[in-house]
């Protein structure tokens, strides 16, 4: 007598999928719980944390944004190995605007967000026509090369970078902006991915020929996804520049490429919330492991490989399954 595990959606999940949820407090609570609790929790954490850990939370939020931006791209079939490109371009735009033109951070960050989105989209536009690993190759190589070029040509402060940039105020302001931003980005993009526009992006990932034969210019839509993703990445870069009051070659460093991908691997791709969850595990963890120095990157890389190969599902999918479904063993007649 063999056994088989059966997974069935909970009744409340099925009912909540429709508008009926609005008629029952229980069902509304069921829907609201997984959304409200993390939001409240993050703000509570920010309120009670020491200055040091509040800074860590700010950094975490920015890595979460980078991870979300990676996931947006991946949903449309583009695998990036260089979120650092988006991050760095945003950082340098904000930094130079603030340093050379004295523009306030409250203006440089929005400008860098849009400008970074435009610049990165234009640079990567030709790659969109190619499939497979070309995108990964080009995105991997560009940040590393730009880093070297800045070193060689000594533009924008060269190896020294530009320091003494303005901040957004104190760390509490930074935390508030970061936390609000991360939730706004997460929920709005999750909403977007569940509309038909999101379906279209996922469709391009699944089978671009079918999308084409429906009369749609997939490159146009891919470029849009690229813009959205790089703008989110550029925001993170611009924000961190003002938080550190410094911009320099390190903004193109591998860290900004590898931690977002590792977060996605841990949290689970394709959900946007998964990558964010991943960053909230990995970044604070790496703060705790600070004593290990160089070994941290090794640990990241190993986590990355183990999660990609061994746990392709990711934590978020696991949690959402536990929340929405129940499992039972059923006997199978042979």
């Amino acid at each position: 007598m063999a056994q088989r595990k059966e997974r069935i959606d909970r009744g409340i999940k099925v009912r909540s999928d429709d508008v009926f949820a609005l008629t029952s407090w229980r069902e509304m609570a069921y829907l609201a719980f997984p959304r409200v609790v993390p939001v409240v929790l993050l703000f509570l954490l920010g309120a009670v944390a020491s200055i040091y850990w509040e800074r860590v939370l700010v950094t975490t939020c920015m890595f979460a944004l980078l991870a979300i931006s990676w996931d947006i791209l991946a949903s449309a079939g583009m695998v990036s190995l260089g979120q650092a490109l988006f991050f760095g371009v945003g950082a340098y735009i904000a930094g130079t605007l603030n340093h050379y033109f004295g523009i306030s951070p409250w203006l440089t960050i929005p400008i860098a967000t849009l400008g970074g989105g435009v610049v990165c989209t234009l640079v990567l536009l030709p790659v969109l026509r190619l499939r497979g690993i070309y995108f990964a190759m080009v995105t991997m190589i560009l940040p590393l090369m730009i880093e070297r070029v800045i070193e060689a040509t000594k533009i924008f402060g060269g190896t020294e970078g530009i320091s003494g940039l303005n901040t957004l105020g104190n760390v509490h302001t930074e935390f508030l902006v970061a936390a609000v931003m991360v939730w706004v980005v997460l929920f709005s993009f999750r909403r977007m991915m569940s509309t038909d526009y999101g379906l279209l992006l996922k469709g391009i990932n699944d089978n671009d020929r079918a999308v084409m034969s429906a009369g749609m210019n997939i490159y146009y839509y891919k470029a849009q996804a690229l813009f959205l993703s790089s703008a989110v990445g550029a925001f993170a870069g611009a924000f961190m520049t003002h938080a550190y009051q410094f911009v320099g070659m390190p903004v193109f460093a591998l860290d900004y490429s590898i931690i977002p991908i590792a977060s996605v691997a841990v949290g689970g791709a394709g959900t946007l919330a998964g990558p964010m969850l991943g960053s909230f595990i990995l970044v604070p963890l790496s703060e705790l492991l600070r004593g290990l120095g160089g070994l941290r990157v090794v640990i990241y890389a190993v986590i990355l490989v183990v999660c990609t190969v061994g746990l392709p599902e990711g934590i978020f999918h696991y949690l959402s399954r536990k929340y929405n479904q129940f499992e039972r063993w059923v006997k199978v007649e042979r």
Partner: peptide
């Protein structure tokens, strides 16, 4: 490693990238 994710381009790329990083940074460490 790769055999388990063969055909999944994303995972292949990420797995080799991660392995390379782990080896290099281990030497540095």
């Amino acid at each position: 490693i790769l055999l388990r994710v063969r055909g999944l381009v994303v995972s292949e790329v990420i797995a080799t990238f991660g392995m390379g990083l782990a080896i290099l940074e281990l030497f540095r460490y």
